[in-house]
Every structure is written in C-alpha cells, then in structure tokens.
C-alpha cells in the first residue's frame, strides 16, 4: 500500500473535529491518517517541514474569518482544504484565490471531505457543489472564460445530479463530465493571485491531460506578467 496521506484538522469546535476524525477513520481504505488537531493556527507546528500533507481548515476560528491566512499556510508547504459553514460564493472564491485546493461546505462534509483531502494531496482538483455554485455565480471582470460544455457540466452538478446523470444528460461519459468540471477549476487556478498550490494544481492538470497549456495562456492577467513571476503555464515544480 502506498504511503497514507497525513492530515491536520484546524477547527475551534471539538465536536466538529471529532466528527471529521470519525469520517477519516471510517474510510474503508484507511487512506488518510490524522496526525494533528488544533483549535487555531498558532497550534500548528512551524518547522522546516510541514507537519501534514493536507490541512482541513475551518474558515472561521473563534469568530474570525481566516481566509487571509491561507497564503501563509500554502507558502509553508501545506495543501489547504477549506471546510466551512459559510457558503457565500464570494468567500468560496476568495478561499480558492488565496490558494486553497478545495472548498467543502459543512453540509457536504460526510460525502466529500475525505475525497477532497485525497485529491488535494495529489494536487488534483476537487469541485464540490458549493464550489460549482461559486464558479457559476462569479461575475468578476477578470474571471476565466468557461466553454459552453464546462458551464453546462458545472450547472448540472450544482443542481444536484450525480456525475453519471450529468453524463447521460449531456450524452457524454462520466469521465468527460469530470474532465469538464476539473478543467473549469484548473482555469481558475491560472487566474488571480499567484500561489505555489495553484501552480501545482495546474501542472498536475496538464500532466493528467485535463487541460492543455495553450488553453491557459489567454487567461493570464497582463497585470501579473512581470518578468520574475512564474508563468502559470510552466510552473516551477
């Protein structure tokens, strides 16, 4: 068996921490190992090496939103999966823009959290319905252009269909549905502020054939094409 993915939970409500821990324990393949829990970000070990592959981060700790702390965690080498009761699309978009790999609302936790952690550990996109909702609602002027098919797949997924049903509806395979949704997510990794986690997501998406480097270039913001900034098309990994 491959090495298990290590995870830390940052959550100020012990009962939620306990619930998340039980989802991790009840994963049939026992693919995830819980190595640390903390009630705030100061409790996180700050050594030269990150103490876990992935952090499950509650976005509201002691009544304060911590989306602004995500870039720091990403810079320290953590992959962040946000787990939050907030479903406001603006907060979801900010979380992703700050470099979180995925966003899981508390309603979606039991079905999606472990899968999102595993996808994050492999730098693969994982798009929950709440994330699809935020992408559909996005009206910012610098948003990436999604194709008709990508939008339709995101819409049907947001509406609550299973990916197999979305495939039947669109007369495509379930795999292609995943590809459309993941490609939409990858396009977002190429926009907004730069973060190593977003570069890693893109690199993996290219490697997996989800997106071609040529599909990314037009979405790069001119504002960030300074000579020393890493090109999203060729991340430094």
């Amino acid at each position: 068996m491959e090495q298990r993915v290590t995870v830390a939970i940052i959550e100020d409500h012990p009962v939620v921490t306990e619930g998340v821990a039980s989802w991790i324990r009840s994963d049939p393949g026992e693919r995830v190992q819980l190595v640390q829990t903390a009630r705030d970000l100061t409790g996180l070990a700050t050594g030269p090496q990150p103490s876990a592959d992935v952090i499950i981060l509650d976005l509201e700790l002691s009544g304060e939103l911590v989306t602004a702390q995500i870039p720091g965690l990403v810079a320290a080498g953590y992959r962040v999966v946000a787990f939050s009761g907030h479903s406001d699309p603006a907060i979801v978009m900010e979380t992703l823009d700050n470099g979180a790999h995925a966003y899981v609302s508390k309603d979606e936790g039991s079905d999606h959290l472990v899968e999102a952690v595993l996808a994050a550990a492999a730098d693969r996109p994982y798009v929950t319905r709440s994330q699809a909702r935020a992408l559909l609602a996005d009206q910012r002027p610098d948003r990436p252009t999604l194709s008709q098919q990508e939008r339709q797949a995101l819409l049907l997924w947001f509406q609550g269909m299973s990916k197999a049903s979305v495939g039947r509806r669109m007369s495509i395979t379930e795999n292609t549905v995943r590809q459309y949704i993941n490609r939409a997510r990858a396009k977002y990794a190429a926009t907004g502020r730069t973060a190593s986690s977003k570069d890693a997501l893109l690199a993996r998406a290219i490697e997996d054939g989800v997106i071609k480097p040529g599909e990314i270039v037009p979405y790069q913001s001119f504002a960030r094409s300074a000579p020393d900034s890493p090109s999203p098309g060729a991340p430094g990994h």
Partner: peptide, 17 residues
C-alpha cells in the same frame, strides 16, 4: 429535494432533484 436557481444566458434555470 434539492431546488436550485441559477442565472443562465437570458434568464433563470430552476432545477429540482
């Protein structure tokens, strides 16, 4: 039942699952 409302090109899509 999940009911969603989304803006689409020229109007609104209300779905039920």
């Amino acid at each position: 039942t999940r009911i969603t409302l989304a803006t689409v090109a020229a109007g609104i899509a209300v779905s039920f699952v």
